[in-house]
């Protein structure tokens, strides 16, 4: 345990020491995602919007879904938007960080002293930037719809931070695994699809039968999506237990991921 703790602190120190490189690599990832495409950064807006339209038509028009009263809005589209934007951040951060080590094999095999632990972090950072653009869209829509923002709105940054911490930790695990077993990416995309349906993005958590409520609440994304909606629409906070669970899961994932990555990283150059 003490050894793992030392590994972890050394790790954290390295991240701070390399912040300049983290910045550069994050910008590159962002550029790779948007520069060169016709609409560039507008995709960060189009992407969630198009999903809102699809789910809105299917579930809002066909299934006549209505948001639960606790979100204090009757607009299904608004309800959807507030759930889809954090979900997309989460799923894109995870899937891009899973492949980031394999994609940068050139740096890992050729650059002496390259701190590969920063790679999953740069994926998450570049996704945070995309997410912030998406968040602007959400705020604009919420203000246009309801005429103002609740005082709890800044809380989304706390939830965002927690899910970013969770994503970095998972990114370390996934990207490390992916070096050895390339099936990781495939499994991940399946898992993300499954998780999407078990996260209350296009339905309200209250429609889930009581006996499954506990199971649903094990999913950290449940608390994030719930937190965003409560903060932006209802003007309330997550229950303390939910919040503590989210923070705990994120911190533990971050720590486990860091130690795991540090332990497998010496073999990257050989396997890649």
């Amino acid at each position: 345990m003490k050894e793992n703790l030392l590994i972890f602190f050394d790790f954290a120190r390295k991240l701070v020491a390399n912040r300049y490189m983290i910045g550069m690599l994050s910008v590159r990832e962002l550029k790779a995602a948007y520069v060169g495409s016709l609409f560039g950064f507008l995709w960060a807006v189009f992407n969630p919007l198009s999903q809102v339209v699809i789910y809105g038509v299917v579930f809002g028009l066909f299934f006549k879904s209505k948001p639960d009263a606790i979100y204090s809005t009757d607009s299904f589209l608004l309800f959807l938007l507030c759930g889809i934007v954090p979900w997309q951040f989460f799923s894109q951060a995870l899937s891009s960080s899973a492949s980031v080590v394999v994609n940068n094999r050139n740096l890992i095999k050729k650059a002496a002293g390259f701190p590969s632990e920063i790679l999953p972090l740069t994926s998450v950072v570049s996704n945070i930037i995309s997410h912030l653009i998406g968040l602007v869209l959400v705020l604009v829509v919420v203000v246009a719809y309801t005429g103002g923002l609740p005082a709890t709105a800044p809380l989304v940054f706390v939830y965002m931070f927690l899910i970013a911490v969770f994503a970095v930790g998972s990114g370390w695990i996934l990207s490390g695994l992916n070096v050895f077993v390339r099936d990781t990416q495939q499994v991940l995309s399946l898992a993300l699809m499954g998780l999407f349906f078990f996260t209350p993005v296009f339905y309200s958590a209250s429609i889930v039968p009581a006996e499954f409520q506990f199971l649903m609440k094990l999913n950290p994304m449940y608390h994030v999506v719930e937190g965003y909606r409560l903060a932006l629409l209802a003007g309330t906070m997550l229950p303390a237990t939910g919040f503590a669970y989210l923070a705990g899961v994120s911190a533990v994932t971050f720590a486990i991921g860091g130690v795991f990555f540090r332990r497998v990283k010496p073999w990257f150059a050989e396997v890649l």
Partner: peptide
């Protein structure tokens, strides 16, 4: 270090 061709450049 200058290892083979590459030197750890990022192609993009």
């Amino acid at each position: 270090a200058l290892l083979e061709l590459g030197a750890g450049f990022s192609p993009d």
